[in-house]
Design a protein around this nucleic acid. Structure first.
Length: 283
DNA sequence: CACTCTACCTGCAAGC
DNA sequence: TGCTTGCAGGTAGAGT
């Protein structure tokens, strides 16, 4: 599903419809997603103003004027889309409800925000705003890859003693929070590191190069509106287009894009998940 | 503690 | 046209 760039794109797309705006009515169509919804979620959301929409890793956080914060995770297949006119100036119609529309926010400004998630790996929860960082899902997350705390010194110290493949280490949200299968594959290609190489066998110099590379990949993906493969849509329903910029992800059997390299991209399976890499360029 | 694997759920594509 | 199998962007929790 959505990795950090997709979640950030959704957050930014929701902001005009939700930030500073009142949820006139929250409609909750089932008791749970991955876990049960919090007690009386519809009642605690209805009538509340959203003061701020934030993102932490792959989570969207909506700070409410009730001193509570709504946590949203999109899982693998979750979408949050806006219909109607966010400014409420015109008469408009919303599209018909679809299968798997589990939660619907009707904003006082006329916009409708719909959470749709076929696989239901997503989640929502409510917590007191000052206790956000202590929430069980957020407490052990590592630094934001686009923040100052994610730097060469931190990264090398966090990774150089790990004996797992570097692919698994980068997917560990305690090391750095927000990467997923796509962007790990892409970053390792750019760094010339094989996904199966043990992290503790990579030189400090090469490890350090991953820090700016990870930032570059994520920033480029955000600028492209994320990557749309199957389920992912931006908040306005449009597709992201970073998938057209993939060097390795999903390109099994296709030629490596490195000038002068005649190898083809290989797909391997690591801990049950596909990895894509160029056997020539990545060592 | 570090690390690996399973399970959660639906939909889709490929193969028979 | 079915039926079966495998695969999918995540990650908590169990197991080693």
């Amino acid at each position: 599903m959505p990795e950090l760039p997709e979640v950030e794109t959704v957050r930014a797309g929701l902001a005009p419809a939700m930030e500073g705006e009142v949820i006139a009515r929250a409609q909750v169509n089932r008791p749970d997603l991955r876990w049960p919804f919090p007690e009386n979620m519809a009642g605690r959301l209805s009538g509340r103003r959203v003061d701020r929409l934030r993102r932490r890793s792959k989570y969207i956080l909506a700070d409410l004027d009730s001193q509570e914060t709504l946590l949203i995770h999109l899982g693998m297949s979750g979408r949050m889309t806006v219909s109607g006119d966010p400014l409420g100036r015109f008469v408009h119609e919303h599209p018909a409800a679809e299968k798997h529309d589990h939660v619907v926010f009707d904003m006082a400004n006329g916009a409708r925000v719909t959470f749709n998630d076929p696989r239901r790996f997503g989640a929502m929860d409510l917590m007191a705003t000052p206790e956000t960082e202590a929430h069980p899902l957020l407490a052990s997350l590592g630094p934001e890859p686009l923040g100052n705390a994610f730097n060469e010194a931190y990264f090398v110290a966090a990774v150089k003693h790990r004996r797992s493949p570097i692919k698994a280490v980068l997917l560990d949200q305690k090391v750095v929070a927000g990467l997923g299968n796509i962007y790990v594959c892409e970053a390792l290609y750019r760094a010339g590191i094989s996904p199966s190489r043990r992290a503790d066998r990579i030189s400090v110099t090469r490890l350090a190069t991953l820090v700016p590379i990870i930032r570059d990949v994520l920033n480029a993906a955000i600028a492209a509106g994320g990557s749309s493969l199957r389920d992912y849509r931006r908040a306005d329903g449009e597709l992201g287009y970073f998938q057209h910029s993939f060097d390795v992800y999903g390109r099994e059997g296709e030629p490596c894009r490195t000038p002068g390299c005649s190898a083809t991209i290989r797909r391997t399976v690591q801990s049950g998940r596909s990895s894509f890499h160029c056997p020539q360029c990545q060592r």
